[in-house]
Design a binder for these strands. Sequence first.
DNA 1: GATAAAATACCGACTGGTCGGTATTTATTG
DNA 2: CAATAAATACCGACCAGTCGGTATTTTATC
Lengths: 202, 202
Amino acid sequence: MTKQTRGEDTRARILISAEQGFAQTGYDSTGVAEICKAAGVSKGAFYHHFTSKEEVFLELLDRWLTSLDRQLADVAASDGSLQEVLDGLLKIAPQILQEAGGQYAILLEFWTKARSDPKVWQSTVAYFQRYREFFVGLLANTPGGDSLALVEREAAAEVLVAMIIGLLLWGALDPKAADWSCVTRTGLELFTRGWQEKGEQR
Amino acid sequence: MTKQTRGEDTRARILISAEQGFAQTGYDSTGVAEICKAAGVSKGAFYHHFTSKEEVFLELLDRWLTSLDRQLADVAASDGSLQEVLDGLLKIAPQILQEAGGQYAILLEFWTKARSDPKVWQSTVAYFQRYREFFVGLLANTPGGDSLALVEREAAAEVLVAMIIGLLLWGALDPKAADWSCVTRTGLELFTRGWQEKGEQR
DNA sequence: GATAAAATACCGACTGGTCGGTATTTATTG
DNA sequence: CAATAAATACCGACCAGTCGGTATTTTATC
């Protein structure tokens, strides 16, 4: 193995172990030593690749956001109706949720740390807003949707994002409480119906 | 001041300071010393009234749940239609959300700690379920609602709870991002419309 | 109602251990 | 032999919780 690939491998192993640790027991209670042990790597190697534990966390956050954006871009590119796009979302939802064997519990960690770390806060809030904007644009293209005021589209988009956030949180906390993909489907369906009904009343 | 009232006062001050600390910077980064300083109390007093930092946290959780239950019971007692009960909910929402000057950010702390602490997890998951049940029952009393299968009522109730959770989380994270009471109203409205529409199609 | 005894409330220095991070040394690659 | 990667020993800060002791209030006894 060349020097470079060896380094990359070590780095990757650290990231994986850190993600698992953060997802399972949280950022604070996952020690650097623990991460190193799980990755089969020494502390020296850890601090050779990263300047701090926080840097690892931020890189994980960055990767998650990038991955999410890519998947959303795919859906958005379809350029379809509200129904179609939401269907597209539903299709990729399990992929996002189940990826890495339920490790998406790290989302909770992102949201928690957003309160104490300005960088994390900014990233987190920014992508909430980004999806809000996405849905606002989407709702404008809906039959009847353009008849409604911007504030109403905005509020509806916020509701949609909030619903997704809530589903993620509850799902992360209690994966076996319900069939979450089924609940998500119902949610998007109810939302679509409610929105169209609202538009038609004008 | 009698001995008893003095003790109660100290205890109350500790709880208040702890709540503020937890809400502002999180459970882990709020030290016992810090809580004591904010409460104007010594560490000895702290450990005289509580056996551990965790006990304080659990008591705060318990108080929050009790308060929430009381308020929900009031709304449930009205025994009205879906629309009426949701309106009732909406009325008390700001009271719950704004209480103690936005200190409800401690909710995030409850949800975070639920992952590492079995006691907190149980309480948290249990009240998610309780509200789910509440809404399931409520939806059965809705015109057209009884025509839908139980699973559908359950899924819808889960959607509703998830939406509320999401609104609370986003609101806690970014209070100024939107007019949350307005968004909540829209959310409940969309949900009601979507649900009734669904029922009528049968 | 005075005095002793007991219980409660409180204080703050100290400790034992954890954990992020560093400094130094050793191994591996080119 | 240079340079990068990795290992190990170690440091210092921090923090939950302890403990011996003091002050204040309540109860018991005469």
